[in-house]
């Protein structure tokens, strides 16, 4: 699942880091760093973090449906995107 945090909005309340520690971590007192690509097994924790963020700073897709609804089908480069993971 993909996610992005609007760090202008983020207040460093750390709820997300508490609920999904493998995706979000505090870096120092109030800076948040996160992995924009959460693995499938983090689905539930991520959903909880998104819901718990007091300023709704987290946007994630693919949370409610399992199917890949992204519509890049016409892109010549879609194949590259799929293969681009370096496996980490």
């Amino acid at each position: 699942m993909r996610l992005v945090v609007d760090l202008n909005k983020c207040q460093g309340y750390a709820q997300c880091a508490f609920l999904a520690p493998d995706v979000f971590a505090m870096h120092g007192d109030e800076a948040l760093i996160y992995n924009p690509h959460a693995p499938e097994e983090q689905r539930e924790r991520l959903a909880r973090a998104v819901a718990a963020c007091p300023v709704q700073a987290i946007t994630a897709d693919g949370l409610d449906d399992r199917g890949d609804k992204r519509d890049t089908g016409n892109a010549g480069a879609t194949g590259d995107v799929q293969e681009a993971s370096d496996g980490r």
Binding site: V4, P36, G62
Partner: peptide
């Protein structure tokens, strides 16, 4: 802590483009 190849932006909705 994140892969350079996996920072694609989540889509807020389908855009049929």
């Amino acid at each position: 802590k994140a892969s350079p190849h996996r920072t694609e932006l989540p889509h807020r909705r389908e855009i049929d483009a």
